[in-house]
Design a protein around this nucleic acid. Structure first.
Lengths: 186, 186
DNA sequence: TTAAGCATGTGAGAATTTTCACATAATAGA
DNA sequence: TCTATTATGTGAAAATTCTCACATGCTTAA
């Protein structure tokens, strides 16, 4: 169980068991990024972790803008999971005059018109869109204009962006609909 | 543009454009469930919608239990998207004595020990797990024992359940990590 | 030093998914 | 009625993804 680097090691078989994949799949996927394992031994847990952290790019902090300070936006501001992994929400923006100026989790909600200036000043690379479906495309366009290159979209719409901007969609209703399908057809 | 049934119709080409897929893919996927289209015309929007609503099983309501009344849980209770699509949260549960008895969005948070009885009484088929990663497996086991067959899991862990129970995972950190990878390696 | 045991990394093949391309059915206009 | 046009549904090919199985390298023990 001891790897050369001193740490405990883990086999592809065990990783597969833990993640719900097959051992061959784990080996192939890891081999895509490099030869991290040691034949006859396995993968050094600490080495592997360091390598992956570096590859995924979470070895340094990213600054994020939260756009949309409704229920979901508030929850995301309060959510500790992002910051733990190096994703820090440094600005919150909304178009609703009743929300602008209010403070949530130590951040003051600003007018959306401030986004472009803030993005540059605060070095924001990533935006979270937690607006309604109707406003989302407009907000995305503004984000792109502000130089933001990656977007986490919670609005239930397919957004159009240039290829230089990456969008990850989180659609909660799609997930429950999948479960509904399963319950219906099981 | 008019389909036989009277409604407006839409082509696979246009559906593809709207959803970000190819026309051939749209046709094959729809054909898997039945021959909904009309050659030379397209798909009747209203017919297609009805068919899909029925296949996905959202032509009737589902009752859900929310487990974990932290920030995320509160946001999910306040989120309108579920109810709009026929998913109704009819019970909220937590183990934290400070949360039990409090009211969020017209629902009183109950002790987790009440889940099993409530699930039967309220005909709950679906659970949302919005607890910490540490509690999630335990909460899942309890849900399974309570007869719940489908689970939407927000805790960042891979849960083990019998094959008769379906789990959909929503891991927000995975999504931002994907964006981080993209920003790092673009 | 040698042999036995272990687990990686990876060709080769299998399985799955996607795309191509066209026969077929429906519609509209002359 | 006949012709031109349109867009589905689907075989067949292409591309991609996953699995099998084993040569290879590392470790331990005698």
């Amino acid at each position: 169980m001891e790897a050369a680097s001193g740490g405990t090691s883990i086999s592809s078989d065990r990783l597969a068991h833990l993640t719900g994949h097959t051992a061959a799949q784990v080996r192939r996927d890891l081999a895509y990024f490099g030869n991290f394992g040691k034949r006859g031994v396995g993968y050094s847990v600490s080495d592997l972790s360091n390598q992956l952290v570096s590859i995924v790019g979470i070895d340094h902090n990213w600054n994020m803008a939260l756009i949309g300070a409704g229920n979901l936006g508030k929850a995301l501001l309060a959510y500790k999971g992002f910051e733990q992994r190096g994703f820090k929400i440094v600005g919150a923006y909304d178009n609703d005059a009743r929300k602008i100026g209010s403070t949530i989790s130590n951040l003051t909600v600003e007018s959306l018109s401030k986004l472009s200036e803030s993005a540059k000043r605060l070095d924001i690379q990533l935006a979270i869109i937690a607006t309604s479906a109707e406003s989302a495309q407009e907000v995305l366009d503004l984000s792109v204009d502000s130089g933001i290159m990656a977007v986490l979209n919670f609005a239930p719409v397919r957004l159009n962006a240039p290829d230089t901007v990456q969008i990850a969609n989180v659609d909660l209703t799609v997930e429950v609909e999948y479960l509904s399908y399963w319950l219906t057809n099981k």
